[in-house]
């Protein structure tokens, strides 16, 4: 059984990549299973998906806690304590990461899928690229089956013909760039977990309630950002427009009435940039 866990952000194609890997393996005659993490999180928020590949029937369900392979779509997730993408990765496990500089060192495969996707497809959706690179690194599927899986799954999610063709070119390129590491099929089951005893607690503990209301800034949704708004204070007139329109209350007014962006939580919607009447907000890398 080969267990693959994919980490990305909502909108990056993490789920689709899992589907592609799973279908490519199936086309090679393996048994496979893929499923997404189910959560309420939205575009830009950390998400995950899971693939199991086996020569026999897959007798596991749910999330994968000890993967053989981690596929990382977004470099920024690597340092996220909440996500902890490498958690449980087995010894000799493989990491396939979407980042440069490209190359393979030991069991770490780096491929700059985002740059390649922007060049070949025109947008930063790396599902086909990361799936193809992963399939190749694991040695689970020949290129023709990978491309067939890419085509099927991208059509399934409604991609237009021309975009499918561009993604096929991207997938083929990424497949060719990665060496086949040929990860060994491991028979060992998922790690066992210790159990805790649960006791009855006083009412305020045992009722689902929050007394620290307004504590969600601790969630730090700033990591969702794909662009960073930056205020040019030499132009800013403190008109408050950005403050009023920020959906997330991530812009505060300081003692002088100047808007201050809370980058820990700004999701990068860029409404402030669009609405700023004097164009004092610029767009920078996240």
């Amino acid at each position: 059984m080969l267990r693959v866990r994919l980490h990305g952000r909502g909108g990056q194609g993490t789920k689709t990549a899992g589907s592609i890997i799973s279908l490519a393996a199936t086309l090679e005659g393996y048994h496979a299973q893929d499923s997404p993490m189910y959560g309420p999180e939205r575009r830009g928020a950390p998400v995950a998906s899971f693939v199991r590949i086996s020569r026999d029937q897959v007798n596991e369900r749910g999330y994968i806690t000890s993967p053989d392979v981690v596929v990382l779509f977004d470099r920024s997730l690597a340092s996220s304590k909440a996500v902890d993408p490498l958690a449980g990765l087995r010894k000799a496990g493989v990491l396939v990461a979407n980042e440069g500089p490209e190359g393979t060192e030991g069991s770490v495969v780096r491929i700059d899928a985002s740059s390649r996707a922007r060049r070949l497809v025109g947008r930063d959706n790396v599902s086909a690229a990361m799936a193809a690179a992963t399939c190749r690194a694991l040695g689970i599927s020949r290129v023709e089956n990978v491309l067939s899986a890419v085509e099927t799954e991208l059509r399934e999610v409604g991609l237009a013909d021309q975009d499918v063709q561009k993604n096929l070119a991207l997938a083929e390129e990424c497949y060719s760039l990665v060496p086949a590491l040929g990860v060994r099929d491991q028979d060992s089951p998922e790690a066992e977990h210790a159990l805790a005893e649960v006791r009855y607690a006083p009412h305020y503990v045992s009722t689902s309630l929050i007394m620290s209301t307004g504590n969600s800034p601790q969630k730090k949704t700033g990591g969702w950002r794909t662009s960073r708004p930056v205020i040019d204070y030499s132009k800013c007139t403190n008109c408050m427009v950005c403050f009023v329109y920020c959906p997330d209350s991530a812009i505060h007014l300081d003692a002088d009435g100047a808007p201050r962006i809370d980058y820990d939580n700004c999701k990068g919607c860029m409404i402030c940039l669009t609405e700023c009447p004097i164009r004092a907000v610029s767009e920078e890398a996240p």
Partner: peptide, 18 residues
Amino acid sequence: APVAFSPTTTDGFVYSYF
């Protein structure tokens, strides 16, 4: 003394506990 009753949860361990 604010209080937020019965928040949503998507975590099995939270649901399981309550």
